[in-house]
């Protein structure tokens, strides 16, 4: 006797999704609320004072633009990774996954340079509320990037063994990881103009 949980690798006939996919969508809904709350905090704080600085004056816009391009590129590669699995091509999947992870590291490295510049100038969350919310939102976003790296690296490495035994389930996992990665990308797409350009 053993516990059997249905709809792990095939979609539920009524809802049209697997358990994991529904779970990821729900998780992303709560993430939207988390970042939504932080963005509303930013708006409230900004409206509450007269001397809110412009991001383009004090933040490094070119580096952030580079990061935007890098993240968008990684969103494409993660889709390609999934598509490769759909076409039964594991080695191509590996290539694209490596590219995705590489992009994530580039993003973090650029971010580290940005942070480093700020710290060099003695800028910290205590400096002003602009920097405080900047550090909190980009920091939290950075943590999400690190989380993505861990998940993707697992799926590239030990996790990919599932391909041999349960290919559909593995493809589903890549899809879920991809959804998450798109979300992290999307947060940055919002974050970039609000913090850097406005």
């Amino acid at each position: 006797m053993s516990v059997q949980i249905p709809y792990i690798d095939e979609p539920h006939p009524v809802t049209g999704v697997t358990n994991a996919k529904l779970g990821v969508w729900l998780f992303l809904a709560s993430e939207v609320m988390l970042f939504g709350a932080l963005f509303s905090a930013l708006i409230t704080l900004r409206l509450g004072v007269n001397d809110w600085p412009h991001g383009y004056d004090i933040l490094n816009v070119p580096l952030a633009t580079l990061n935007t391009v890098v993240l968008i590129f990684s969103s494409v590669t993660v889709v390609m990774a999934w598509a490769s699995l759909k076409m039964q091509n594991l080695s191509r999947f590996r290539t694209y996954m490596v590219l995705t992870i590489l992009c994530s590291f580039i993003f973090l490295a650029v971010k580290a340079v940005e942070y480093g510049h700020k710290f060099e100038h003695g800028i910290s969350p205590a400096t002003s509320n602009f920097y405080a919310i900047y550090f909190v939102i980009t920091g939290l976003h950075g943590l999400h990037i690190i989380g993505g790296i861990i998940v993707n690296a697992y799926l590239l490495g030990p996790g990919s063994r599932m391909w041999k035994t349960q290919p559909e389930r593995f493809t589903g996992r890549i899809e879920c990881a991809g959804l998450y990665w798109h979300f992290v990308d999307l947060v940055w797409i919002f974050l970039f103009p609000i913090l850097y350009l406005l």
Binding site: S2, V3, Q4, I5, P6, I8, D9, T165, Q166
Partner: peptide
């Protein structure tokens, strides 16, 4: 074969 199982 993909059904998730764990032991009793």
């Amino acid at each position: 074969h993909a059904e998730h199982t764990h032991s009793g």
